[in-house]
Design a protein around this nucleic acid. Structure first.
Lengths: 187, 187
DNA sequence: AAGAAAATTTTACAAATGTTAAAAAACGAA
DNA sequence: TTCGTTTTTTAACATTTGTAAAATTTTCTT
């Protein structure tokens, strides 16, 4: 669980607190296409993606729209459902055969409410996700479709190779036709 | 500091912890047009907006683009700068004469690292902002400009009255001409 | 109230993106 | 391989949105 531990420690958790957290994780493997999280459910787990790729999407009318795409070392959860304990609107699907580590809401909550070091780790986790979310939002407001795609190429070249373009277009907020045009233009 | 306390308690802080937190806040008043936070600075304060309206914006080429707009009971900070202790890219300007409560990074950090209850409060604060940030991002991906404006009317009718339309157009990610067209269509 | 300044709307045209459908290319299973 | 399916690209056209500039309305000041 190398990727998972790397992710955990990157948020400044002290090494000595690792033994409190790690035993709560449970390894889980799922095939490509598995729906890890489904809208309408109240999700009581968080996952760390050890190996694989996942997309988060919502439904707009009859279409699916991706709003997140990520590979190894990412956290998978429905913010809305997990934090507020209500049915979520997010779906998360695995786009490759994947290995994950799963931790339950209860287990995590118990740690948070009894262990200062881990409570602060959880805070930093949320803060770092918040920075990323804001950056995504701002990038979308600032940039043309072409700029967004160019950013994507440089920040996630691996995902570009491993995921079909329709998913990437949806994630970038453009139609697949537009993405094709951009790709033709750059080439 | 009614609005500020309401905001603090809404995140599930126990009443008995309030006396630890409140004395750290310092009241501050600024006139309309004051730049509370400037890009390039490393910001060491968070503000709670007791009275007034603020916008957060970045520069794109020579233009300003709003990415946040809020009134009373909102938290004002540069996520990037405050959490990571680096120069931020965000600017925050007050759009009305405003009353704020200010707390320093050091004071807050001391509390977080010594008080379990407050560390968890800080975690929930970041989590709730994260949910909002994600919702904003998704809404923008999902909705047409017209739908975004209609949402804005219903969720923030007060801001619509108090802020000029150019700022709202920028926040909605559209030109002012497009906003005018939408308004003419709805009328 | 009158004039100046600022904000908003309107107009005309250009550029970007979406939709639908067809063509081409890539991929997989027998 | 070869056929059939899926994915990607291309084409044609419609729609949306942006830009620049002018017209109008609102706001502020004297």
């Amino acid at each position: 669980m190398e990727n998972t531990i790397k992710k955990i420690l990157s948020l400044g958790l002290k090494e000595e607190s690792l033994p409190k957290l790690l035993p709560l994780f449970e390894k889980a493997e799922f095939p490509k296409g598995h729906m890890l999280i489904k809208a309408g459910r109240t999700e009581r787990s968080v996952y760390l993606l050890e190996k694989g790729i996942a997309r988060a999407f919502c439904h707009k009318d009859d279409k699916e729209i991706n709003f997140w795409l990520g590979a190894e070392s990412n956290i998978l959860l429905s913010y809305n459902s997990f934090f507020l304990n209500t049915p979520g609107y997010e779906n998360i699907e695995l786009l490759e055969d994947s290995v994950l580590y799963k931790i339950s809401h209860n287990a995590l909550q118990n740690l948070y409410l009894t262990d200062l070091e881990l409570a602060n780790w959880g805070r930093r986790l949320a803060e770092s996700e918040l920075i990323k979310a804001e950056e995504c939002f701002i990038a979308r407001q600032f940039k043309t479709a072409k700029e967004c795609y160019e950013d994507f190429i440089t920040t996630s070249p691996d995902i570009l190779q491993r995921v079909q373009l329709g998913h990437i277009a949806s994630y970038l907020g453009i139609s697949q036709v537009t993405l094709s045009r951009i790709r033709a233009e750059i080439r």
